[in-house]
Amino acid sequence: MPREELAAWLRLMLTPGVGTESARKLLAAFGLPQDIFEHDPAAWQSVVGTRAARALTALPDKLDAEVDRLQAWLAEDAHRHVLTLGDLHYPTELLQMVDPPLMLYVQGDVQALHHPRRLAMVGSRNPTPQGEANARQFAHALGEAGVCVVSGLALGVDGAAHEGALQAGAPTIAVVGTGLDRVYPKRHLSLAHRIGAQGAIVSEYPLGTPPLAAHFPQRNRIIAGLSQGTLVVEAAVQSGSLITARLALEQGREVFAIPGSIHSPQARGCHALIRQGAKLVESAQDILEDLHLVPARPAELTLDLDTDAEGEDSLLAAMGFDPVSLDALQARTGLDTARLQARLLELELQGDVSRLPGGLLQRLGRG
């Protein structure tokens, strides 16, 4: 993109007092940003009012420096892109939104944004061990079936979903709430690099933008908008994941939810969604069939959730899949404390059981 065109887009985005709604009105009225700035303030005022028109008369602070920084960032890596509303590579699904981003910054393969099979996976930043395992297993199975998983790079379910997709050799898209020259959370730095190499990281925020709390609910509309459906793995009742689900419904997309224990606060958001009409799913196959997504290649798609005790460890059968206390487990099995603790330790080391806060134990699903 020529420097003058890039500068015009950044001026429109960075002018204080001119939000995305006003910017879209100006674009609709005058065309590209360079065309907007060829008109006089009186013309702007007729479209966006006096205050926004007055703001547009002044150049944003350090505009030239911002253009320099963006051009340098783009030049450092051929896999870095800036897509504007007028760009041929801009995802058509986002154009159908009420408030599409004016610009998208992309690190990675821009073609991932046009993958024919895209599903959002979202959930708690503090999932139960089973919830995290479910996210990884579903993403792996969906990835093997040729689906591109879209999530938000957050801790917990998001990170597990990206990991599962990457392990399946599938592309995955991370939509973030910072500038692409930053990684948040920092512990996902390595994961972000892997996503950029195998899929794409996307942001609507200029370089240098820090992780402000208001940006994360805002970026959720892009996660939902890029996807044919949204799967909520685990979520509390007051959760950003439910915002993503609501936005998906508003955009006419399917919403799926994995049920959990009635005793787990992290399952209550999913149960609320199911009561409101979200589709209960127990396997990746449920999602593929509902969205009419034919697997790209054979894959084991079902997450084993049943509790059939035939041929399995009797202690695991006694645990079921809900969180359980040591006392309750001892009452079910009749084992003395020493033997029970020793066997639980074995199962924990094998990855079959996890310890939860409050002294509870939970059996982990088999992937």
Rank of each mutant, 00 (worst) to 15 (best):
A72F: 03
A197F: 09
K62W: 14
R268A: 10
A133L: 15
L231Y: 05
P211C: 07
G177Q: 08
F30I: 08
L345F: 15
A245D: 08
L189G: 04
E66S: 12
L303V: 11
G31W: 10
L32W: 05
S261T: 06
T57R: 11
E254V: 00
L113A: 02
L104R: 00
L315A: 03
S325Y: 12
P206T: 10
G260R: 03
G123Q: 08
S190W: 14
D61Q: 15
L153D: 00
G196E: 13
H162S: 00
P185M: 10
P259Y: 06
T84V: 08
A192E: 05
L26K: 07
A154N: 07
T172I: 01
L10Y: 13
E310P: 01
T307G: 04
L315R: 03
V176C: 01
G177Y: 12
G311H: 07
E204A: 05
D308I: 09
K62P: 03
E289N: 02
T50P: 00
G159M: 09
V157A: 05
G164S: 06
D181G: 03
D40A: 12
Q341V: 14
A154G: 04
H193W: 09
P116L: 14
F37D: 13
L361T: 04
T128Q: 10
E21W: 14
G49K: 13
G225E: 09
E312F: 12
A52K: 01
S46G: 15
H271A: 07
D327L: 15
S325F: 13
P206L: 14
V67G: 00
T15K: 12
G123S: 05
A331R: 15
P101E: 00
G164C: 07
A72G: 03
S22F: 02
H215A: 11
G179T: 07
T92C: 03
G260P: 05
W44M: 03
V255N: 02
A23S: 15
G208N: 05
L166D: 08
R117H: 05
H81M: 11
G17N: 12
S151C: 09
A296M: 09
V110H: 00
V237Y: 02
G169H: 10
L83C: 03
P33I: 10
G177L: 13
A154F: 12
I195Q: 00
V232C: 12
P265C: 02
P101W: 00
L349M: 14
